[in-house]
């Protein structure tokens, strides 16, 4: 009991140390696993479009998957934008405080709760046939289909943060505009948007960060081909879907290349999320 307080504080400190060890251990392990691939390909790994596991001619490059990841996530954000924006205005402003707003809010929360693999299944059995029916391509797989399912998956993240930002706009500013005879549309575009702009922007950055790392649903819909997609309805692979797809049969240089891609994915999502957190702290 003499030093009870010190012991407690030490335990708390040690616990906090564990997360630092886990995080730095992760980075070290990823870097270590990358070494064989790095020794073989160097920085060309990032710019090479080859993914050839044939023994003797093994050659791996990450560019198609970097492109696939960015393209699907950008498609997702473009589709997500009008939907999440409207929904956040619905919840945070137009029907704020009404039952219908909390109902829509609950539905959006439920969207966030759906596991990735269930989105993938639904995309495979429902969304993909629609894409085929509309004649975009024969199989329905591709970066657009993957981007579409990603959009549905990240809408809840963009929406919930946007709602907070919209609600943060001071009520007396909105009232001042209404007292001058402004309509709701005027208030949205002249008062809410200018004042919540950076927050709403940040919500899309964070949603983008989410989209980058999504695995299962994308794996099931993107078509899994190791080439740079040339059009919206081309098949491709993202960094995450490649790892999920190829990990089972990987060892040696191929495994190392997958780890290198994981490291890249870790760095890219880290940068995007870091940017988002930085922006949010400024608000």
């Amino acid at each position: 009991m003499l030093n009870g307080e010190k012991i407690t504080k030490t335990i708390l400190f040690l616990a906090s140390l564990s997360i630092i060890l886990i995080a730095s251990g992760m980075v070290l392990s990823l870097m270590e696993g990358t070494i064989p691939a790095f020794n073989k390909f160097g920085l060309k790994f990032i710019t090479s479009t080859d993914w050839n596991p044939t023994e003797g001619k093994e050659s791996y490059g990450a560019l198609p998957f970097i492109v696939g990841t960015v393209v699907t996530s950008v498609i997702a954000i473009i589709i997500c934008l009008p939907l999440a924006f409207s929904t956040s205005l619905f919840i945070g402003e137009i029907y704020r405080g009404k039952k219908i707003a909390s109902f829509i809010g609950t539905m959006v929360d439920m969207l966030a709760g759906i596991p990735s693999i269930v989105y993938g299944l639904w995309g495979f059995y429902v969304l993909r046939p629609w894409i085929v029916e509309m004649g975009f391509n024969d199989q329905g797989y591709g970066v657009f289909t993957a981007g579409l399912i990603l959009a549905i998956m990240v809408i809840p993240y963009a929406t919930s943060i946007s709602v907070e930002m919209i609600k943060m706009v001071q009520n007396d500013l909105k009232e001042a505009a209404y007292s001058l005879g402004a309509t709701r549309k005027d208030v949205v575009f002249n008062v809410i948007l200018p004042n919540a702009r950076s927050g709403i922007f940040t919500s899309y950055i964070l949603a983008f960060g989410r989209a980058l790392g999504e695995t299962m649903a994308v794996t099931m819909l993107i078509g899994n081909s190791n080439i740079i997609p040339k059009s919206l309805f081309d098949t491709g692979n993202t960094m995450a879907s490649l790892i999920a797809n190829q990990f089972g049969e990987a060892d040696g240089l191929k495994l190392s290349s997958l780890v290198a891609i994981a490291l890249l994915l870790f760095v890219i999502t880290g940068l995007i999320n870091g940017l988002g957190k930085m922006l949010i702290k400024k608000i």
């Binding site: 007396d172 009232e175 001042a176 001058l180």
Partner: peptide, 16 residues
Amino acid sequence: RRKIGMVFQRPNPFPN
């Protein structure tokens, strides 16, 4: 509201 102007408790000029 255009015919009836209003001034609020705290000054609230539009910051943007």
